[in-house]
């Protein structure tokens, strides 16, 4: 029980979210908000912050209650916890940063069904200690924010000629397509390819075609995918 080994054990929990198990680029979870709100950097950062906050609270609560929640009803229990947290975050955002609320719109309440949060609750927090779950949430949240930020940077700089609202070059030269849905799919695809390439240097690629299977909600879902 000395401090050094404890630190050595917990540090990877924090850092794995960045590249090795990046939720967006490697595990391919939470694709909907990633594509939808990555047209502006402000929106992407707001989304990243909201998801990280909800993830942090939900991981902590689920981990603290992991012995109290019966296994059979755990998914409905998790969904209720997450939906409550999302509602709280939504009210906070509406009250203090109404501009962000306007940018995120429907995607803010939809954090409830974001696979990253349920996936981490069921796949990690329900069998790890509170401290490890909190670190995992911070790492995963940072990884999500980093990924959505890079997609938004590419889309906003190329598509609108702006960086977080600052004009870099006149938008008349900017191909609008990068702001439209096709551009979102395209940039996301290219970034996954880059992440695969980076990770392949060290080890075999993961996350290929495992979108749904990787999401922890889908105990039933996984069965479904296998059956298909």
């Amino acid at each position: 029980m000395n401090n050094a080994t404890e630190k050595e054990r917990l540090l990877p929990e924090l850092t794995k979210g960045f590249l090795k198990e990046n939720p967006v680029l490697r595990l391919v979870l939470g694709t909907c908000p990633t594509l939808a709100v990555s047209t502006t950097i402000t929106g992407a950062l707001g989304m990243g912050a909201a998801v990280t906050l909800v993830l942090l609270c939900s991981n902590a609560i689920v981990s603290a209650l992991r012995r109290a929640i019966p296994d059979k009803v755990r998914i409905p229990a998790y969904i209720t916890i997450i939906a409550t947290l999302v509602t709280a975050v939504q009210m906070l955002v509406k009250a203090f940063v109404p501009a962000v609320d306007a940018t995120l719109g429907i995607y803010l309440p939809l954090i409830t069904v974001n696979c990253i949060i349920l996936g981490r609750a069921d796949g990690y927090a329900n069998r790890h200690s509170v401290s490890a779950s909190v670190l995992d949430a911070l790492g995963m949240g940072a990884g999500f924010t980093a990924a959505i930020f890079s997609i938004a940077t590419i889309r906003e700089v190329i598509g609108a000629g702006r960086f977080a609202g600052l004009t870099l070059f006149p938008s008349a030269f900017a191909p609008l397509i990068f702001l439209l849905p096709p551009g979102g799919f395209f940039v996301y695809g290219i970034l996954i390819a880059v992440a695969n390439k980076l990770a392949r240097r060290k080890r075999k690629p993961t996350g290929q075609d495992s979108h749904c299977a990787a999401c922890g909600v889908c105990a039933g879902c996984q069965k479904g995918v296998e059956a298909i």
Partner: peptide, 21 residues
């Protein structure tokens, strides 16, 4: 090889989405 799997799927989705536009 580096586009196999998801990246190729997403780029295909981009083209389908373009047609819907």
């Amino acid at each position: 090889a580096f586009l196999q799997g998801l990246p190729a799927t997403l780029i295909a989705a981009a083209l389908v989405s373009l047609s819907f536009l």
